[in-house]
Write a protein that binds this DNA or RNA. Structure first.
Length: 339
RNA sequence: UGGGGUGUAGCCAAGUGGUAAGGCACGGGACUUUGACUCCCGCAUCCGUUGGUUCGAGUCCAACCAUCCCAG
């Protein structure tokens, strides 16, 4: 009997190829499109029709608002920089797909993410990075370990180029659709304006230097993130960067680029896949970028502190820190302000 | 009012007779399933104004205007 799998179909290339590959491998495939209230269903329907699979529709508007949108706005107002995709996957997207899978009696779900789930020598399931070129495990590192047995990432061993070629080979109608790169619920890309349309408009305040000297006026703290350079509108002898956001005084602190380096990073709300230990050496990612910093773990109650071998540029409160051993993700945690 | 200084793009600033550096800001692009960073490209037909000298002036001269400082 065929294994039944539910594939999250966004209407994009990756998820379409995911479904096509699973069909080819002999799975019984159900598609599931998640409705966030901003359209896009037609594309998913076209893909499902092309593949000849049923398409379920899951309405996640309520959970998305509660678990992602509201916290997203709140984080900015608190002077932090949220990472909505990394939050949505464990809190909304994957739970919704798992629920839908249960409804149709599917044993597993699959998505078009570039990451891998494998068993190690001891038979333990682990989350692993995808190909260096287009690894997306950062956005998935918040997924509870308990989800892993129910997830397939058929694209994990592939690169984007291959996937586009496969899409053409399969004759998928979305083969040449451009990659999406924005926050799904902020389609125009202007997240600050989006926050303001919710009725929360943080007031302008002072740009200050490290000594507290006022340098200018900022447009509201939600416009800034640590390490940011553009959009400040201030000219100086050299490039100025945001080095700290102080919600209590509504100040945005600016400094030169060389003052953004940090030797330690602290995170909390840890999500672990493997046990970690005091003094353990890991590779640390502080944002969705290619740079991994060698670091040593220092455990404190409920928190992990990382001592970086070389300083890292602008660790940002609110972003996810993901730590690895080789390709294997050991866990993740949310970056907090250093004491 | 007297003495001195300064006036080059949004900001800072090179340039001292040969046909406008650079930095910051800003705009665009690349990169990127978050925010950022980074990289690439663009950005003064014109140098406070008006005259003058010169083959040729931002660069020399004069007057005027503006602004700053010290005298009061």
């Amino acid at each position: 009997m065929k294994t039944r799998v539910l594939v999250g179909l966004s209407g994009g290339v990756d998820s379409a190829v995911t479904a096509a590959l699973l069909l080819k491998e002999g799975y019984e495939v159900f598609g599931c499109w998640l409705d966030i209230g901003l359209g896009g269903r037609r594309e998913a329907e076209k893909v499902a029709a092309h593949l000849g699979i049923p398409l379920l529709v899951g309405d996640i508007r309520e959970e998305l608002e509660r678990e992602v949108c509201a916290p997203f706005a709140a984080e900015y107002l608190a002077g932090r920089t949220p990472s909505p995709c990394a939050l949505c996957n464990p809190k909304v997207k994957f739970p919704a797909l798992l629920r839908a899978a249960q409804e149709v009696g599917a044993d597993v779900i699959a998505t078009g993410h570039y990451a891998r789930i494998r068993r190690d020598e001891e038979g333990e399931l682990g989350l692993y990075r995808g190909r260096e070129k287009n690894d997306q495990v950062y956005m998935l590192a918040g997924l509870p370990k308990a989800f892993l047995p129910s997830i397939l990432f058929p694209l994990g061993d592939l690169e984007k180029k291959q996937v586009r070629q496969l899409a053409r080979d399969f004759g998928l109608p979305v083969a040449d659709k451009p990659d999406s790169m924005e926050i799904c619920f902020v389609p125009q890309g202007d997240y600050a304006a989006w926050i303001e349309t919710r009725g929360q408009v943080p007031p302008p305040g002072d740009f200050v230097d490290r000594e507290g000297k006022v340098l200018g006026t900022h447009r509201g703290i939600h416009h800034y993130t640590v390490g940011q350079r553009r959009g400040l509108g201030l000219s100086a002898a050299a490039r100025l960067y945001v080095s700290e956001i102080r919600p209590a005084t509504n100040q945005v602190v600016l400094s030169w680029g060389d003052q953004l380096q940090a030797g330690t990073v602290t995170c909390e709300s840890l999500n672990l896949y493997s046990p970690i230990s005091q003094g353990q050496e890991v590779l640390l990612r502080l944002r969705h970028s290619k740079i991994a910093y060698p670091a040593t773990i220092s455990l404190e109650e409920g928190r992990a502190r990382f001592l970086l071998k070389d300083p890292a540029r602008a660790p940002t409160p609110g972003q996810l820190a993901v730590f690895y051993a080789g390709d294997r993700v050991l866990g993740s945690g949310w970056i907090v302000k250093e004491a």
